[in-house]
């Protein structure tokens, strides 16, 4: 079974030595993200995110389905992440690696269980018809920090997505085509993002947006998911070297700051995209109102 190649003794020693002087291989400060590019497709609900050389594509698709019998008033929202050899020869098709499980679980908790997307809003006819939304996350290139990049892609795609407008007339569900009525945005209650922190020297040094090499040489990883309002949805430390509790608190503070930063980038890209699509200015006014909420 192919596995990601481990860095050599020399590389590991060098990265640790450099960090003692607060130097990273690409010259970034310890708390800086790599260059972030977000691009949207022609259709709504497709976001292509590049963080340095890591690249993730997220596509939102929807269909109408019956709700789960124990959740009559909720729509369905599934997130799938499948790592493929596209991203790295270490990934195999059809076999779920540890990384995939980890990624899947973090995104589930951050986006689904935190009700970032209100599943109630997806209900059309209680007990009979609901929207079933799918977020397919395709990892195109793995150069470290898949979690943050995937979350940015998923959130950007969700915020960008438009689903057909519907109405109910006499118990019958009517779904309008885009020509009949403009598609409507999804009801997102808040905009959480994940920040992965890789730590060294028992937590003394915490790296934001680590490259694959840095991740492999780190002592451990802490993932914090939060929204720009400062509410934390997830704190995960799965094994790795022990750290002081204060280190964890410092990490959470750092992460919330980064979430606000990245959130602003997503806001800006969405605004630009809206302006591009709608020369009239109606949509961009709407978006500004949404931001102010």
């Amino acid at each position: 079974m192919p596995r990601e190649a481990e860095p050599s003794i020399n590389e590991r020693a060098f990265i640790l030595e450099a960090l003692q002087e607060n130097i990273r291989l690409d010259g970034r400060p310890l708390d800086a993200f790599r260059e972030l590019h977000i691009a949207f497709g022609e259709e709504y609900g497709v976001a292509d995110v590049q963080l340095g050389k890591t690249r993730v594509l997220c596509r939102i698709s929807a269909s109408i389905a019956s709700p789960y019998p124990d959740r009559k008033f909720d729509g369905i929202f599934t997130i799938t992440t499948e790592l493929s050899p596209l991203a790295s020869p270490a990934f195999e098709v059809g076999r779920q690696s540890d990384l995939e499980t980890h990624l899947s679980r973090v995104l589930e908790t951050t986006l689904r269980r935190s009700q970032a997307l209100s599943t109630e809003s997806l209900c059309l006819i209680a007990g009979q018809k609901v929207w079933s939304l799918r977020a397919d996350i395709h990892i195109l290139s793995h150069f470290g920090n898949l979690i943050d990049t995937s979350c940015i892609a998923a959130l950007a795609a969700l915020r960008h997505c438009r689903i057909p407008d519907t109405s109910i007339k006499g118990g019958v569900l009517i779904v309008y085509t885009p020509l009949e009525r403009d598609p409507v945005p999804l009801a997102l209650l808040h905009h959480p993002l994940c920040i992965t922190l890789n730590y060294f020297e028992s937590g003394e040094k915490m790296l934001v947006d680590a490259t694959l090499q840095e991740q492999q040489c780190s002592e451990g990883e802490i993932v914090v998911s939060a929204n720009p309002q400062g509410e934390v949805c997830l704190v995960q430390k799965g094994g790795g070297g022990e750290v002081d509790a204060l280190v964890l608190l410092r990490g959470i503070g750092l992460a919330v700051g980064k979430v606000r930063e990245v959130g602003k980038v997503i806001d800006r890209v969405l605004e630009e995209d809206a302006k591009r699509r709608d020369k009239g200015g109606v949509v961009s006014r709407e978006l500004r109102a949404e931001n102010e909420r």
Binding site: E42, R59, A62, S63, P85, L86
Partner: peptide, 17 residues
């Protein structure tokens, strides 16, 4: 020799209604 193809977009819409 491993060939992987990812379909980025197709003419089938994202909304199956």
């Amino acid at each position: 020799i491993q060939v992987t193809l990812q379909i980025i977009s197709s003419t089938e819409g994202s909304f199956n209604v």
